Simulated assay, not measured.
Amino acid sequence: MRIDYHTHHERCGHAVGTLEEYVRKGIEIGLDQLGLSDHMPLIHVDPATYLPEMAMPMDELPRYVEECFELKSKYKGQIDLRIGLEGDYIEGWEEQIEAITTAYPWDYVIGSVHFLGTWDITDFRQTQGWEGRDRLAVYEQYYDAIGKAAASRLYDYIGHIDVIKRFGYQPDSSVTHLEDAALEAVKRYDGALELNASGLRTPAQEMFPSRRMLERARDLGIPITLGSDAHQPERLGQYLDDARALLKECGITQLATFDGRKRHMIQI
């Protein structure tokens, strides 16, 4: 079974390609299931005054869902489309997030932490945010948010759980205890994780999560799904062969899939 549950398209502003181009590419590379999962619209910052090209406008959200369902019907029998959303977790905005995650018939919602306040720690244009900060304190804030995202039960799985390492900024001291606490929160609230292969094309030079975290997730019995985090159709499925190989090396033999907000396990 070949799946890719994490993709973005032109509506978000910082990806290219139409939804249909991703669907056709998925068929071309032999995916069995393709998850369409663009970014949730910004809710805690003013899109008009924030940095451009961060997420789809709110008025595009219903059009996005409608197009997903049209494509699901059009390509039925050729590829199994799952309709999703990458939903930011922003502390204090849980009610507004829930309004979005319950307003549409999603198959799944990814819970990702991109923002610490108004700072997007995953945006290459905002790496100056690290300047003058205590890196350990930033990691503590980040993993605290991951734990709260898991506890909110707003999401079906946590996306790129250690993406904070993306640009190579690391504290001098170990953060293993922070990582493990976040994993334990995911387990406590019956969540799942993705193995996000896109880390291999970032300065971090490893997937999200790291092998150590993946093995700890295995020991805890946390279900795992797969995503390329493609922002271009030609990157759909990128590094997922490596990701499947890593899962097998770690003794993980099943993948989590999602349908109507319900989790199903399949063999890799």
Rank of each mutant, 00 (worst) to 15 (best):
Y104L: 02
D229S: 07
G30R: 03
K76W: 13
Q96A: 11
E98Y: 00
V45D: 00
H177S: 03
D46K: 05
A149P: 00
I161D: 14
Q238F: 10
G191A: 15
I79W: 01
T7P: 14
R263F: 00
E67V: 14
A185R: 15
L136G: 09
I224L: 13
Y239T: 09
P105I: 05
A245I: 10
H177N: 07
L154S: 03
G26T: 09
E95D: 10
E95T: 08
I268P: 05
R2I: 15
Y64I: 13
R11H: 11
T49D: 03
H14T: 04
H6Y: 02
D120F: 10
L36D: 05
F258N: 03
A197K: 08
A48F: 02
C12L: 09
E94C: 06
R125N: 01
D190A: 00
Y143E: 08
G17T: 11
V16T: 11
E60Q: 15
I110Q: 02
A197E: 08
A182Q: 09
Q141I: 11
D32G: 10
T118M: 06
T102I: 12
Y108V: 02
D241G: 15
A243M: 06
I90T: 07
E194W: 08
M54E: 03
Y239S: 01
D229H: 08
R63Q: 12
K148E: 07
L255I: 13
A185Y: 12
R125A: 02
I90Y: 01
G191L: 14
G237P: 01
K187N: 01
Q96S: 09
G92D: 13
S112Q: 03
E70F: 13
P233N: 00
H231K: 09
T225L: 09
L214H: 05
S73A: 15
R244K: 14
T7D: 13
M56F: 12
I252A: 15
I100D: 11
G199H: 06
G251D: 06
G159H: 14
K262S: 04
F167Y: 02
D162K: 05
I27K: 11
A103R: 00
Y142H: 11
Y64G: 12
S112W: 05
H114R: 02
Y157G: 09
H264E: 15
V113N: 12
K148G: 02
Q205K: 09
L136I: 15
L136E: 12
M265K: 10
R153L: 00
E94Y: 07
D162S: 07
S173K: 14
A103S: 03
E86S: 06
D107S: 14
D241L: 14
L71S: 01
V113P: 09
I110A: 03
E28F: 04
L61A: 07
S228H: 08
A99M: 13
G251E: 01
Y22H: 02
F69R: 10
V65K: 10
F208I: 07
Y142G: 10
M213F: 08
P52N: 08
Y89R: 10
S174D: 11
F115A: 00
C68H: 07
S228A: 04
V65N: 11
R263N: 02
K74P: 14
I29S: 10
G227V: 14
R82P: 15
L51F: 15
A243R: 01
L193H: 08
A150K: 13
D172Q: 14
E95Q: 09
V175H: 04
